[in-house]
Amino acid sequence: MKKSIYQVGAVVILSAFLAACNTDTDEPTTSNAANEEPAETEEVQNEEQPETTETNETDESDDASSDQQEEATETSEETKAEQTDKADNTTLTYISNGQPFEEKVVTSTSDEMNYTIQHFENYTLTSEEPGVDSLLNNADEATSMQIEVVQKEDVTFDQLKESAKETISAIAPDSTKDLDLASTLEERKEISNIVGYEALLEDEKVVKVVIERENLFVTLTIYDNVQADLTDAFLQMGLTIQ
Rank of each mutant, 00 (worst) to 15 (best):
I168C: 06
E148Q: 10
K152S: 00
A170V: 13
A142H: 08
Q146C: 05
A139M: 12
K177I: 07
K177W: 03
I211G: 01
L201S: 15
V206I: 03
E129G: 04
E162F: 09
D158S: 08
D154C: 03
N138D: 14
E202V: 12
D180H: 13
G196H: 04
E190C: 07
T126N: 13
L135P: 01
N122G: 09
E198V: 00
L136D: 10
T167L: 14
N137F: 10
Y197R: 11
T126R: 14
S127G: 12
V132D: 00
N193T: 11
L179A: 07
E129N: 07
T176V: 05
S169P: 02
D174I: 01
E128V: 02
K189F: 02
K189A: 11
E129S: 15
I191C: 05
E198F: 02
T156L: 07
Q118A: 10
E214M: 06
P130R: 03
A182M: 15
G131T: 07
I211Y: 02
I211V: 06
E141H: 08
N122R: 09
A172W: 05
E153W: 03
L135T: 01
E141T: 10
L125H: 00
N137W: 01
L135W: 01
D174C: 06
E121M: 12
V150Q: 13
L181D: 06
A199S: 08
E186W: 08
Y197H: 12
I191V: 06
Q151Y: 09
V155G: 05
M145R: 04
S163F: 05
E190N: 14
I171P: 12
I191P: 00
V150Y: 04
D133P: 03
V150R: 05
P173V: 04
K205D: 01
E202N: 11
K161V: 01
L181P: 08
T156H: 01
E214R: 11
E190H: 09
L185C: 09
E162Q: 13
I171E: 13
F120E: 09
L179I: 02
I168G: 08
P173D: 13
A139P: 06
D203H: 04
R213F: 06
S183D: 14
S144A: 10
E204D: 11
A142G: 08
V209C: 03
I191K: 01
N193K: 14
D180C: 04
L201E: 15
Q159T: 11
E153D: 11
E187D: 15
T124G: 03
T176H: 02
N193Y: 04
S175K: 12
E202Q: 11
L125G: 00
E187C: 05
I147M: 01
A139H: 07
E153V: 00
D154H: 04
K165P: 02
Y123Q: 04
G196Q: 09
A164G: 01
T126C: 08
D140R: 14
Q151D: 14
Y197S: 06
